[in-house]
C-alpha cells in the first residue's frame, strides 16, 4: 500500500509541470488564436502556429516575451471576407474554400499579447519548448561571425534578390528599422529564432505551415545558411 502511494505521488509530481502548462493554455484560451497541434488544419488562426514552438524559438526569448510581450508582426490578420467583385455563376463551379483572411495595420492601443507572471511564464515557456514536430533532418548551420563585407553582401541579397524587406522589418546599416509589416518583424530575430530552424524553414516551409503568405524559394544551401547567419545578427539591442 505504501509502495503504491509512493508511485502515485511520484507520477503526480512528474505530470505536474505539463498539466500546469495545459491549464494555462486552457485558462488563457491560447488555442483560439494559436494552432497548438499539427492535427488542427481546418481553421485559419490569427496568431502564429505554436505546435513547433520548441523547434523555432530560443527559450530565454520565449520566457521574456510571455512576461513582457512586444509586437512581433505589426500587421494583424482579420479572419473575415474582404471586399471583392461579385462571383459569377461560372466561378461557383470552381468555388473554393475558406476566406483568405486579409491584413490590416495593428491599432496603437491593442495589447500585443496577454502577459504572465514569472512563474506562469516559466511553466508555459517550458511547456511550449516541448512542442516539436518531426521535421525533416536539419542541415548543419554555420555559426562563424560575419565580416562587415559579408554582412553587406548578404543584406543586398536579402533585400534585392529575394525582396524579403518588402514584408519583413529589418535593420539598415545605420541601425534603423525599415521594411514591410505583413510578415513577422526580424529586428529581433537573432534573439527570437533558432539558427537551424531558419535554415529548415527556408528549405521546407511546408513542413511547418500548410499555407504561408511568404513566397516559396528554391535557394541553395549556401544562401539558406547565409540568411540564417545574417538574421542572427539582427537584435533589438542593435537598433539605433
Amino acid at each position: 500500500m505504501k509502495t503504491s502511494t509512493f508511485f502515485i505521488l511520484i507520477g503526480f509530481l512528474l505530470l505536474a509541470p505539463s498539466s500546469s502548462t495545459a491549464e494555462i493554455l486552457r485558462d488563457k484560451d491560447c488555442g483560439s488564436c494559436h494552432r497548438l497541434s499539427v492535427a488542427e488544419t481546418e481553421k485559419n488562426f490569427a496568431a502564429p502556429d505554436l505546435h513547433f514552438a520548441g523547434d523555432k524559438f530560443q527559450p530565454a526569448w520565449l520566457k521574456q516575451f510571455l512576461k513582457n510581450p512586444a509586437v512581433i508582426r505589426p500587421a494583424v490578420t482579420v479572419i473575415d471576407t474582404p471586399p471583392r467583385p461579385p462571383v459569377t455563376v461560372a466561378d461557383a463551379n470552381t468555388a473554393v474554400v475558406t476566406a483568405a483572411g486579409f491584413l490590416r495595420e495593428r491599432s496603437g492601443n491593442s495589447p500585443p499579447h496577454p502577459s504572465f507572471s514569472e512563474q506562469d511564464a516559466s511553466a508555459l515557456a517550458d511547456g511550449l519548448m516541448g512542442l516539436k514536430i518531426s521535421a525533416p533532418p536539419r542541415e548543419s548551420t554555420v555559426a562563424a561571425p560575419l565580416s562587415k563585407r559579408q554582412r553587406a553582401k548578404i543584406k543586398y541579397k536579402f533585400e534585392r534578390t529575394f525582396s524579403c524587406i518588402s514584408c519583413h522589418q529589418s535593420l539598415n546599416l545605420a541601425g534603423k528599422v525599415r521594411g514591410g509589416i505583413s510578415g513577422p518583424s526580424l529586428v529581433n530575430a537573432g534573439n527570437r529564432l533558432r539558427a537551424d530552424w531558419i535554415v529548415s524553414w527556408l528549405k521546407t516551409p511546408e513542413a511547418y505551415a500548410a499555407k504561408s503568405r511568404m513566397p516559396r524559394y528554391e535557394m541553395d544551401s549556401v544562401t539558406r545558411n547565409q540568411f540564417s547567419q545574417f538574421l542572427m545578427t539582427l537584435k533589438k539591442e542593435n537598433v539605433k
Binding site: P82, A100, F102, L103, S166, G180, R213
Partner: peptide, 8 residues
C-alpha cells in the same frame, strides 16, 4: 490575390 498580392 487576397492571400498573397493584397499584402502590398
Amino acid at each position: 490575390y487576397q492571400w498573397y498580392c493584397a499584402q502590398c
